[in-house]
Design a protein around this nucleic acid. Structure first.
Length: 420
RNA sequence: GUGAGUGUAGCUCAGUCGGUUAGAGCACCAGAUUGUGGUUCUGGGGGUCGCGGGUUCGAGUCCCGUCACUCACCCCA
């Protein structure tokens, strides 16, 4: 398990802050769904035969009850939506979340058992402009962090788009793929032969060169879309163009979760290699109905913070981030002034400043080193001579200037020194 | 779940053919200045060599097991 340590918090706050700002800009409101759900919620929504449900859930069984840590955010969000009765009062809801997800698998670069996702779920409409808006929001998130757009040579961020059609389209497509593969399936790799049985569409994703040759000329899902779904897909692309957003149709995108319909998309940073997808999402027009509500359209995405941070690190975009230190470091010349140090800190805090004191018994020189290393802009020195006069020394570290100020004026003087 | 790799100081790592007291750089602490930071110099502290077992006169080094982490596959954020 990986912890987020204080040194990394500025980077995380930047991701969270960017996510919130952009989501709010599109009218999304934050929701914090439960981390623990009934296992049945995920088997019903994500799908019985998906990898997530079959082998990646952390599940706790107590008697007849079975609960699982959420492996993704959409199911819980829709469950919360229905439980809050939004579908009766105000069915159109734009909701976003930032929080941990859990999948039991072998960790590797960009993949962890506990990871954080920023996701949005727009429930209550099938308007294709919302698909485009969501894609633009996701891409805008990465751009706001400084990740460049695709440059056509494998650098930058790529938007890949596809449509999976609706249930009927997909059934016809699956039959066509099966018919296409049947004559050559014996020549495919072992893995593909087993995939052919349970999910022939996955054969098309195989990276084996021989299999790819055999897959050339395979039917494309886009050719099997109903007129209505085709129109929806075209409208999404037109809206993306209206937003000035380039996208590439990638017939290979077949989202792994059962609830997806029509629009599916991924955002990739190809230089990351095997694990290049930074964001995945799409439309799930029947999930609300499948979970017991009315048949409402919905679209959403999820962005992984782990891989986002990986990209930012690779691009050197995290270097300058540092936590803000306390305004004042209070140094005491000897142990007799220890109590005064605490009092002075309290006075400064009442004056609206942050302040810290030495608690390791350091000498004055060492306290200055600490103040310097901690990048505290101001140091207050408590000495016996000043104490006798009811005063303290106030030093501005960057300027190297120091002067004596009466105790009673310290907070005001410190504020003034900081402000200038 | 499958395959491979790596575990030595806080961090990055060296450690010969198995041989005495396990090293370096950085970081940390102290002094050089008995009331003042960043540079410099000098000195210092710190390691059950992941853990357990085995071989051996002797194991950081070889063997077995185990745990953790990393990378890849599967799949995905």
């Amino acid at each position: 398990m990986r912890d987020v340590l204080p040194e990394q918090i500025p980077a995380w706050e930047r991701l969270e802050g960017t996510a919130r700002r952009l989501a709010h800009g599109c009218g999304y409101r934050e929701i914090r769904p439960a981390l623990l759900e009934e296992t049945r919620l995920f088997t019903r929504s994500v799908g019985e035969v998906t990898d997530i449900v079959q082998k990646e859930m952390f599940t706790l069984v107590r008697g007849d009850d079975s609960f699982s840590l959420r492996p993704e955010g959409t199911a819980g969000t829709v469950r919360a939506y229905l439980e809050a009765q939004y579908h009766k009062q105000a069915p159109f809801q734009k909701l976003y979340y930032i929080g941990p997800m859990f999948r039991y698998e072998r960790p590797q670069k960009g993949r962890e058992r506990m990871f954080t996702q920023f996701g949005v779920e727009c429930i209550g409409s099938t308007d294709p402009r919302l698909d485009a808006e969501a894609i633009d929001l996701a891409a805008g998130f990465f751009e706001a962090l400084g990740i460049p757009r695709a440059d056509g040579r494998g650098g930058g961020l790529e938007v890949r788009l596809n449509s999976m059609g609706d249930g009927a389209d997909r059934d016809r497509y699956r039959d066509a793929v099966r018919a296409f593969l049947l004559p050559t399936i014996a020549e495919h790799c072992e893995l593909c032969r087993s995939r052919f049985e349970k999910n022939p569409l996955r054969v098309l994703d195989c990276k084996n060169p021989r299999c790819q040759e055999l897959n050339a000329g395979a039917p494309r899902i886009l050719d099997f879309l109903s007129a209505e779904n085709r129109a929806h897909f075209d409208a999404v692309r037109a809206s993306l163009a209206d937003l000035g957003r380039d996208s590439r149709v990638d017939a290979g995108i077949v989202r792994g979760l059962d609830y997806y319909t029509r629009t599916v998309f991924e955002l990739h940073y190809p230089k990351l290699g095997a694990r290049s997808a930074l964001c995945g999402g799409g439309r799930y027009d029947h999930l609300v109905r499948d979970l017991g509500g009315p048949d409402l359209g919905a679209v959403g995405f999820a962005i992984g913070f782990t891989s986002t941070l990986l990209v930012l690190e690779e691009l050197g975009l995290l270097g300058e981030l540092a936590a803000k230190p306390a305004d004042v470091y209070v140094a005491a010349l000897d142990a007799a002034l220890a109590r005064e140090a605490l009092q002075v800190c309290a006075e400064l805090r009442r004056g609206g400043l942050s302040a810290v004191f030495d608690a390791e018994g350091r000498g004055l020189k060492s306290q200055f080193k600490q103040a310097d290393k901690g990048r505290h802009p101001l140091v207050v020195v408590l000495g016996p001579d000043e104490h006798a006069r009811g005063a303290v020394q106030l030093k501005h570290m960057a300027r190297g200037e120091q002067r004596e100020v009466p105790r009673g004026e310290l907070a005001a003087a410190a504020r003034a020194a900081l402000g200038s």
